[in-house]
Design a protein around this nucleic acid. Structure first.
Length: 676
DNA sequence: CAGACGACATTTTTT
DNA sequence: ATGTCGTCTG
């Protein structure tokens, strides 16, 4: 059955969907049906007879890719579009490198995540003696003092990652973002070399390597490039404003001149500069892909006009923008957004919880409500309040389930089993044992790496001393894990083995044991351990541990999310909390105009998630440092926003449990009088 | 060489 | 309020 493009799309969308050949850039504002356009583009291509397997859809998150394939399938009424190859740049790179890496000497490899990266760098730092080394005995006063200000491991990882993502020299990156560490240029350079060597000899790739190795492959192996380019006759890229230089370079070699690439993005929503993302890529699309056509989609379908007025007002003062203004013809009316000033953070939580109850009573399901914030920890207080009231929620962003210690522990065992040469995983697993520290762990890991199975390796030497019993238990666990028929069974064996250690180490071990069961359930969806491990490294579950345990599901939960994790999503009612100078914009951002502007776009992204009702809140006082209450200033982005656009409200409480604030339809003057 | 202790800084956002 | 790094002890 043919798709009725005339009915389903507006003129601007349709023009983009019917783009014929060659490169195209679709500049689409928030809520203008960006995804819709891509989905129909896929449908259109498939309808034209293009094999869906030859369409490559690169998106920023897995959620986006799945959503798109699902919706395309719905339109076409077939499962065809499910065959569209899609995923993140990193997942795509992984796939290609697994297939073609051998051609450039890249054999089996393991993906190391950020914390692995940090551990490796920390280890190398000791080896290179950038910290006082106990073994060397040479502990001069100077050496000790010098090491004091040497960057911490997470900073080191950040610096190295940034140079990879922006394709810039170490010195340049340091000068620009970490000038206070410029003095260590030489050491950092050495350390980075050591890190690269370490990875190469151990068969490890970090996230950045996935991209740069893919680029290297495409640039050095002509025939591989041609095979892949020929295989993907249509490339679609979502969220183009958040791509970094490395990703664009990959696209440039992958797309033959005049080839079919369609990128979709909105320079006003660029919020990933910290990972090298740059909306400049949107600005220079025509230079990168000569002959490109540019399409614009401006009409917003998501939000009511009052919400758009507010969002537009925030962007009006943006330093660099195209004067693009969102408008709605379908939703001209709606309640005005409100700005609620609360006494403090505790009251803010109470106000939000009360508001949620009110909205919910008006018939809006919890799943259509979201609370957004700049940083993960901004919601801690609110989370406590929600739990107290038994309001179910899921939290996205911040600490991830896959990054919690116990999950990483379990996965390390699995990784070690899969690849006995994976010494990073091995060390983590071994150090859990009493009596085994970094040195012994490394020694054992090295010995075991000569065997093709960890169980064999551990069995080959009979350990003596206090750790022998523990090592015996470990060997046993590996025997049963390796004998397992599926990744899930293997993981289950490991989970059982780990229980004692969890009980030993954590107060909340029942929860953690449950988490591992959850992990086993996830594992059961995978046929091979390799795939399971890759999947968890590339697309870690975004839910945080707190949210996972839900109330017995009477109703879909409420969403709590960082603004970053909310990108591309929408809700009927949206609350943006803690919109304070220092929170949003984050105090770090005051270093430069560029960073401040990115924070402004972040607020813009948050506001444009709302369909019908939007509430912004901030506490008037915050606890700064040592229990001192200080007055806080609402975000500078709210300065001089007129009251016809944003209704200011002051939440007043006699007691903390009783708060007076106006219902959304009430206007400012009246409600404020009532408030006092 | 492992592990405990204490001083200190450090609190973003993601693949 | 937490993690990281250095130092000290057995």
């Amino acid at each position: 059955m043919p798709v009725d493009y005339n009915r389903e799309l507006n003129t601007q969308q349709r023009v983009a969907v019917f783009h014929e050949k060659g490169p195209a850039l679709v500049v689409a504002g928030a809520g203008t049906g960006k995804t819709r356009t891509l989905v129909y583009r896929v449908a259109r291509l498939v309808e034209q007879g293009i094999d869906p397997r030859r369409i490559l859809l690169l998106t920023f998150t897995r959620r986006a890719a799945q959503e798109m394939a699902r919706r395309a399938a719905k339109i076409l009424g077939t499962t065809q579009p499910q065959k569209v190859r899609g995923g993140t740049f990193h997942a795509f790179a992984n796939e290609i490198l697994r297939t073609w890496g051998k051609t450039m000497g890249l054999g089996q490899f393991t993906i190391v995540d950020r914390s692995d990266m940090e551990d490796i760098v920390a280890h190398l730092r000791v080896e290179l003696e950038f910290v006082p080394d106990r073994a060397s005995g040479d502990r001069t006063q100077q050496g000790s003092r010098r090491s004091r200000r040497f960057p911490q491991k997470h900073t080191l990882a950040e610096i190295f990652s940034k140079t990879a993502n922006t394709q810039q020299e170490l010195g340049v990156v340091l000068e620009k973002e970490w000038p206070h560490f410029s003095q260590y240029l030489e050491e950092l350079s050495q350390l980075r070399d050591a890190y690269h060597t370490y990875k190469r000899t151990k068969g490890l790739l970090d996230y950045d390597d996935l991209l740069s190795e893919l680029l290297r492959l495409l640039e050095t192996k002509q025939y591989v490039r041609e095979r892949i380019a020929a295989n993907f006759s249509e490339i679609l890229v979502d969220e183009y404003h958040d791509t970094n230089r490395l990703e664009v370079d990959i696209l440039r070699v992958l797309v033959t001149p005049g080839g079919n690439i369609m990128a979709v993005g909105d320079e006003m929503q660029a919020i990933y500069a910290f990972r090298g993302g740059s909306f400049e890529n949107i600005m220079r699309f025509e230079d990168d892909f000569p002959g490109a056509k540019v399409y614009k989609i401006e009409e917003n379908y998501r939000s009511s006009q009052p919400i758009l007025n507010f969002a537009n007002a925030v962007m009006e003062k943006a330093k660099r923008h195209r004067g693009k203004k969102l408008f709605s013809t379908t939703k001209p009316e709606g309640p005005l957004p409100r700005l609620i000033a609360c006494q403090d953070e505790a009251q803010q939580s109470l106000v939000i919880a009360d508001e949620i109850v009110r909205v919910h009573e008006q018939g809006i399901a919890l799943e259509h409500i979201a609370i957004l914030f700049r940083s993960s920890y901004h919601s801690f207080d609110l989370e406590a309040e929600l739990s107290r009231r038994n309001i179910p929620y899921v939290k996205y962003g911040g600490f991830k389930f896959a990054e919690t210690a116990h999950v990483k522990d379990a996965l390390s065992h699995l990784r070690w089993m899969e690849n006995p040469q994976d010494v990073v995983a091995a060390q983590r697993a071994l150090m859990l044992l009493i009596g085994i520290g970094p040195v012994t762990a490394r020694a054992i890991a090295k010995k075991v790496s000569n065997f093709s199975s960890v169980a064999d390796g551990l069995a080959a030497f009979n350990p003596v001393g206090k750790s022998s019993q523990a090592l015996g238990a470990l060997a046993e666990a590996f025997s049963s894990a390796e004998a397992a028929q599926s990744p899930a069974d293997a993981l289950a064996a490991i989970a059982v083995y780990l229980e004692d250690s969890l009980m030993e180490r954590f107060d909340d071990y029942p929860k953690r044991i449950k988490d591992l069961e959850h992990l086993v359930a996830i594992a059961s969806r995978f046929k091979t351990t390799r795939r399971l491990i890759d999947h968890l490294a590339l697309e870690p579950l975004n839910e945080t541990i707190t949210g996972v345990e839900g109330v017995e599901n009477e109703e879909e939960p409420l969403t709590l999310s960082t603004i970053h994790s909310a990108k591309g999503l929408e809700w009927k009612t949206v609350f943006v909390i803690s919109v304070l100078d220092g929170f949003l914009p984050q105090d770090y951002a005051f270093r430069s105009i560029e960073e401040l502007e990115e924070e402004r776009r972040l607020l813009y992204v948050a506001l444009t998630r709302a369909k019908d009702e939007l509430v912004v809140t901030y506490p008037m006082t915050i606890t700064a440092g040592r229990a001192e209450r200080v007055f806080a200033k609402p975000s500078q982005f709210l300065d001089s926003i007129r009251e016809e656009v944003l209704t200011p409200v002051i939440a007043v409480s006699e007691e903390l449990s009783e708060i007076i604030y106006p219902a959304p339809e009430q206007r400012w003057g009246k409600s404020r009088d009532e408030g006092f």
